[in-house]
């Protein structure tokens, strides 16, 4: 069994009195695609920065590629590709030069950087933008360029902090496709997200993080199985009446969640629940049966929804 790429035990990070990461344990195997799923402020970025050896941990143990970030920061960073939450492309350089200049920080010879830059532009589907200014790229293109830049040192681990936040649906799908290819090539991916669909698409395994702690761990399917039912019925009775309706349908399905705008009924068979509701003489404005998702897992674990 190959050694894990990342091992954290009891990892904590304090900013003054604020506890951003409150003791987390995790292990990432080579070639794995690992996700941290959690709402804003959960401590995902902080964890990513500690793994990326740019933030000194307050406590706990952390090994990346068998090395301690406190003493071997440059060594660790030489093998990582980092896609930060906020783009930091060099807007004074053109697209291709961004890749070359970045490669130089790794001590890679200029000629090698240039060759890789061309390959990576092709991979990121940005060949015809090679000479463009960064500011002229769309949000999705900038993100792909940042990913290309993170690959210039041929990293063993690619760290992506909310790679698709703020992108439109089409741009997200293009990006997912690129990341999927990397995954197929065996690159280890560590990514954070607060989108369930993204986690479901890209992650072999993930941890659900809230308030600096890990709430659950497993593959997306496993988590859904363990913490939710097969299907969910979403009922909307109008914002004034949800509470009252929820009380009347109590007992239906495995479990009921009342949100301000809708009532969720967890059940193995959603259609059956819809029928039972109408038999009770209730007529929701809309009713929708869908498969259970990680959103439901999160709601179950924390009592809050993921995106407020």
């Amino acid at each position: 069994m190959p050694a894990p790429v990342i091992t954290a035990t009891g990892l904590t990070k304090h900013y003054g009195d604020l506890v951003a990461v409150a003791g987390i344990d995790l292990e990432v195997a080579p070639g794995e695609s690992f996700g941290l799923l959690g709402p804003n402020g959960a401590g995902k970025s902080t964890t990513m920065r500690m793994i990326g050896a740019v933030s000194t941990r307050t406590g706990g143990d952390l090994q990346v590629l068998g090395l301690d970030p406190d003493t071997h920061g440059p060594e660790i960073r030489s093998q990582l590709g980092v896609v930060p939450q906020e783009d930091n492309l060099d807007t004074e350089l053109r697209v291709r030069d961004n890749l070359i200049v970045y490669g130089r920080y790794f001590g890679i010879p200029r000629a090698v950087c240039a060759r890789r830059a061309d390959e990576l532009l092709a991979f990121a589907q940005l060949e015809d933008k090679a000479r463009s200014k960064v500011d002229d790229l769309s949000g999705g293109m900038k993100r792909r360029l940042t990913i290309a830049r993170a690959l210039v040192n041929e990293p063993r681990v690619l760290m992506l902090d909310e790679p698709t936040t703020g992108l439109d649906p089409q741009a997200r799908h293009v990006l997912w496709d690129r990341l999927f290819r990397l995954k197929e090539r065996g690159t280890t991916l560590v990514l954070t997200t607060h989108y369930m669909d993204e986690a479901e698409q890209l992650c072999d395994r993930l941890v659900v993080v809230d308030q600096g702690r890990i709430m659950a761990e497993g593959s997306p399917a496993q988590l859904i199985r363990e913490h939710s039912s097969r299907e969910v019925v979403e009922l909307r009775f109008g914002s004034q009446r949800n509470q009252a309706a929820a009380e009347r349908i109590a007992g239906l399905g495995d479990r009921i969640e009342t949100l301000p705008d809708r009532v969720l009924v967890y059940a193995a068979d959603g259609e059956a629940v819809v029928e039972q509701v109408s038999r009770l003489g209730l007529h929701p404005t809309t009713s929708l049966v869908r498969r259970s998702s990680l959103e439901d897992v999160f709601l179950r674990l924390t009592g809050r929804s993921l995106i407020e």
Binding site: V5, Q63, G66, L67, H72, P74, S78, Q79, F106, G107
Partner: peptide, 23 residues
């Protein structure tokens, strides 16, 4: 747990080599 005690796999070795020039 020091690095020296565990056997270093190739990822660790690559990391050690990769930082020589930047350092």
């Amino acid at each position: 747990m020091s690095v020296e005690q565990t056997t270093r796999d190739d990822a660790t070795l690559a990391a050690l080599a990769g930082a020589v020039r930047p350092r």
